[in-house]
Amino acid sequence: MENKLVISPSPHIHSGDSVSKNMYGVLIALIPAYLVSLLFFGMGALIVSLTSVIACVGFEYLIQKYVLHTKPSICDGSAMLTGLLLAFNLPSNLPVWMIVIGALVSIGIGKMSFGGLGNNIFNPALVGRVFLLISFPVEMTSWPEPGQLTVYLDAITAATPLTILKEGGHSLPEMQDILIGHKGGSIGEVSVIALLIGFVYLLYKKIITWHIPVTIFVTVALFSGILYGIDSVKYATPMIHLATGGLVLGAVFMATDYVTSPMSKGGMIVYGVGIGIITILIRVFGAYPGGVSFAILIMNAFTPLINMYIKPKRFGEEKK
């Protein structure tokens, strides 16, 4: 029998889906937002994003090869994705050495210390971002004004809409600018429209489901709407809350991270509501102007609990 038959349990066919297809799918969905950021922040955005991606992939490779002694799996695209997402959360004038530290924390502490892809509790890119935010608060909260294409470190900074709000100012940019992305902010968050294009792509490719992002949007809109209704002078409109502070980036790309979000549809909704509420609480009552990152990290911590208590709808549970 030179031609031996293969025996394996059923099923004998596979959808052809793979981890890397999903990861590259998300990367593709990030392209529109990336193009917009290049348009507004030019060289700064390019340097920051390249540094971050290269550093993340490099650290993953080195850690897998020399620390964990496992087969490096950098080709699956997950490190690249972490790198790009981290860059998206950084200002475009951040020095290279800080980015490298952020990447090391993201990959080393956020991901590898838990055992690599699939085992981490917190979204690695956010771990890196929050680490940088706490370590270098000044650098991490001074955002270059858009349109300075050829300057990197010396870019003139401007306040983000949320900082303007926090400081009680009322000279907010036009809504149109906010949506397109002509505003101060981190590299990837600025253009709401580009991010939403990415969202549609992810839904179309069935990489994510609508549950988490939509629940976050609805919760944020409702909660901030109530506050606005109570005192329209003190609190911003729901539209401002939805369109600024990286909410769309967070809701579509960070909160939906497979590893750190709940597994059941019901769980995803609870998770989304949690992120929405915490985001507004931090923005309105907390010390930081932006709260999306913290909200996602806090709900990441609750994910195992949500998974334990909120089970998918079982077949036959509903009696008729």
């Binding site: 031996k4 038959l5 293969v6």
Partner: peptide, 10 residues
Amino acid sequence: RPRTNIYDGA
């Protein structure tokens, strides 16, 4: 004991 097929399960 010659192998007569290839096992490819878990």
